[in-house]
């Protein structure tokens, strides 16, 4: 039988992968994708806990997370486009100066 532990471990692994991506990648778009992985890892635990307790609240919080992710992607990508116009680069290290 699949236990709660299975889902939580998978969620932890995915979260770790996402974190690694945020720290290691040098492309703003990939960093945003890594954040999506982390959000999804959290979603998986929410749904798994919700299933365990027989409550739909977990699923509802997932909907809110998805909404936040959509808003985050829209604003984040708009920022990426604006930054790319200024610096012709997607490397986060190119955006370290506070003014230009």
């Amino acid at each position: 039988m699949v236990t709660l532990e299975h889902y939580l471990t998978l969620s932890a692994i995915l979260f770790a992968i996402g974190t690694t991506g945020v720290f290691l990648r040098r492309n703003v778009i990939t960093v945003l994708l890594s954040i999506e992985i982390m959000l999804n890892a959290a979603n998986l635990s929410l749904v798994a806990f919700g299933r365990y307790w027989g409550a739909v609240d977990g699923q509802i919080i997932v909907f809110f997370v998805v909404t936040v992710a959509a808003a985050e992607a829209a604003v984040g990508l708009a920022l990426v486009i604006a930054l790319f116009r200024l610096r012709e680069s997607l490397d986060p290290d190119a955006f370290t100066s506070l003014r230009w």
Binding site: M1, V2, T3, L4, E5, H6, Y7, L8, T9, A12, A48, G50, R51, Y52, W53, G54, A55, V56, Q59
Partner: peptide, 21 residues
Amino acid sequence: AVWRTAMAHEPVTAGVPARAV
């Protein structure tokens, strides 16, 4: 944290019927 929690070792779909969720 995952290991220590007793409930983590229970099957996730056993307690409540699927209808509930």
